[in-house]
Design a protein around this nucleic acid. Structure first.
Lengths: 401, 401
DNA sequence: GGTCAATAGTTTAATAACTAAACAAACGTG
DNA sequence: CACGTTTGTTTAGTTATTAAACTATTGACC
């Protein structure tokens, strides 16, 4: 098995430190002894590592005696206030910025709408203004900014931190990471929107820690974030998971990517829009370029609008059938459907599920769960987790490379 | 990033030993100094590790002075004759067994045809007889058998070593690993057929060492073996890559898996068979259950048979379009089409390529290669590599767990 | 109240595997 | 023939681990 990395003593120390932090993040407060037994290390080793982590003020401790036999112990905790992190979600119709401390407590949040057809320059300019305010919000609380995480819709090169191409927005080659690192003076981590959702689900969601997980982000655009054995799948250029613009339907409608009958044109927000119009449902003017109307449609469906519900069921069936292809390729144990369409897809969950069940091989379904997430903040939480990960990859070395 | 493993001193030693062996396998003979600089270790460390590997007789050395300045060096080599390995490919219509030494030199090979509809029991019985002969062939050469690798078509559980379900053969829950380990007294590694092909391509093929690679095995059945960042993708149950039985065509024909319009029914051997019949091409009686006729068809196409060529082009176009879905999901740098259909697909390579080019996002294609392999022995070589890998995972500990 | 078991953290000595640096050997070059 | 180059070995020093002993505190039980 090709393991390209070089291993030496300091690597072991670093990996063990990362493992300790990971334990604390997953399980909350723990004693040194518990961590030691979980990781198969001696108590002495954990003590050693922890003392370094406390020097770096990443970890704090409190004494406890309650509910325990024997000597009072010292519970360890990640120090939530050793800094703050900023998440920026650049969606196709709005930009959202969030500030949180290392303990993932939300400190501030704001967003601006982006008008349809806005240039990348204009969009990034208003995003940067929001980030400016976010930085000072963090500073006001005495928290140093440790990094900025960006979730972006499209083909993102995580290494170089640029948007290579947005199949829906049409933008190409926007070098965000280098620009913003120069401007804000902190590390910037750019991630695909769906990847960010997957990271949130894997690190913080109800099924956290699951190694093989697919997060399908469905909105105006559509992509999947995929975890394989606990590692995010990127592929050779970092574009893995672009399942929205894969061929799906014969004689399909034209898609913004230039092809016809893409999966996203059959199950994305625009597919709902198109089918509603075809059924004679009235929608606001200019609604084909935003998703504001979706909330209204959602409410009407909840109120029992038969036409809307049947449209949703049609779309849900297409979603379920397409999901079976993903599942048979990746054999995950959890699939989560999220993004703007998460809320409406909840209304036709049965249709998604039954269509999926009918299309996939039975053995593949036995140990698999299909969930639909209504949580709007998935992508932003994923960005925070990205920054956190990057910092914690080198906990003893400073700012995470 | 969750790294579940526990790391300690002996892990470093083991990982470094694995890296040394990996270097030797990839690059052939090397000096200690070269290995050291490639791996970023000191010459002293490499010497230390190598001396252990030589004690275990896994590595041998020879002096060399030619073409070099300075002191004569000692070239290191994997010792090809420290044992032998057996590969067994259980295809839908025949069983092939191969014996090779650790240096991957072919020592012996034989195969038996399996009649259509044979039970798993009968098939395995004749396979076991071949393995018996293979064991004695290795023994005659003074080589201890280090392990048996099996490539099997269907949903294979690599851990337990059983065939959970064969969508094409219809077999289910066949516990091969435990049976054969008891019978033959050596480790048995069971792998999906496509995975074996992918392992062969990644370890031994023309693009060896490529981290993100897809090997699509097309024959009577169809599946993909997928490497992600140098690691074989298995998924939560080990069934990843079952792309053959994913929904592909509206109003498609019935498939052995119970669904309709699977990808394999449009591009597999049976798809060619069906389309040839529809065009009035004569085929031998009973040919729908074997692939013997394919060689003849291939020859006639090479001779310029227009009807056959146009059928192949139709099938190739379906192959190319489906491949674009795979590529956008995984973003690999190399895609290899292999298996029994490899040979015929070579004859319509242009059609596969142009259909693929037209369906995939341009940015995904830029740094990607699409190759078609005619090599019939891919799967068997992959089995050998599996055994080799397993042995070399614990080079200093004996027989690889 | 005394003893004991359980739990948690620290200290100590031993050990494994690394690095840095010096050393030794052999060869080609000018 | 001196010198630089390359390769492998030896030596001393460093680091992070383990094993085992030690300290400390509490609840349970007699």
């Amino acid at each position: 098995m090709p393991s390209k990395t070089r291993y030496d003593r300091s690597d072991i120390r670093r990996l063990n430190a990362v493992n300790v932090i990971d334990q604390l993040r997953r399980n909350g407060a723990m004693s040194r002894a518990t961590i030691a037994s979980r990781l198969g290390l001696t108590r002495a080793t954990v003590s050693n590592i922890v003392s370094d982590l406390m020097d770096a003020s990443l970890v704090s401790e409190t004494e406890y005696t309650e509910g325990k036999v024997g000597r009072p112990g010292l519970l360890l905790n990640l120090n939530p206030d050793c800094g703050c992190m900023i998440a920026v979600e650049i969606d196709l119709d709005r930009v959202t910025v969030v500030v949180a401390n290392v303990g993932q407590d939300l400190l501030w949040k704001d967003s601006v709408l982006v008008i349809s057809g806005a240039t990348a320059e204009d969009t990034l300019k208003s995003a940067a203004l929001l980030v400016d305010r976010a930085m000072s919000e963090g500073g006001d609380r005495g928290l140093k900014c440790l990094g900025i995480g960006v979730a972006w819709a499209g083909l993102v090169n995580h290494e170089s931190g640029e948007l290579v191409y947005g199949p829906t927005s049409g933008w190409s080659h926007i070098p965000l990471k280098s620009d913003w690192e120069a401007r804000f003076g902190v590390s910037v981590f750019v991630e695909n929107q769906a990847n960010a959702g997957a990271i949130a689900a894997q690190h913080l969601g109800v099924r956290r820690g699951v190694g093989n997980l697919i997060y399908l982000s469905v909105g105006l655009g559509m992509a999947a974030g995929i975890f394989v054995d606990g590692v995010l799948l990127r592929g050779s250029q970092g574009f893995a998971g672009q399942v929205g613009h894969t061929w799906y339907a014969d004689n399909g409608v034209n898609c913004s990517c230039g092809h016809q009958g893409c999966w996203v044109t059959e199950v994305g927000v625009l597919a709902v829009h198109r089918r509603l119009l075809a059924r004679g449902v009235e929608l606001p003017l200019g609604s084909e370029s935003n998703v504001e109307w979706l909330d209204d449609v959602c409410d009407r469906a909840k109120a029992g609008d038969r036409i809307i519900l049947s449209v949703l069921e049609e779309v849900g069936a297409q979603l379920g059938r397409g999901l079976s292809r993903l599942v048979q390729s990746f054999n995950p144990s959890v699939v989560i459907v999220g993004g703007r369409m998460g809320g409406v897809m909840r209304l036709c969950e049965d249709s998604v599920l039954s269509s999926f069940r009918a299309s996939a091989l039975p053995y593949m379904q036995e140990e698999m769960e299909l969930l639909i997430s209504e949580n709007d903040a998935d992508h932003q939480m994923g960005c925070l987790a990205t920054v956190f990960d990057a910092i914690m990859q080198n906990p003893l070395m400073g700012d995470g490379k």
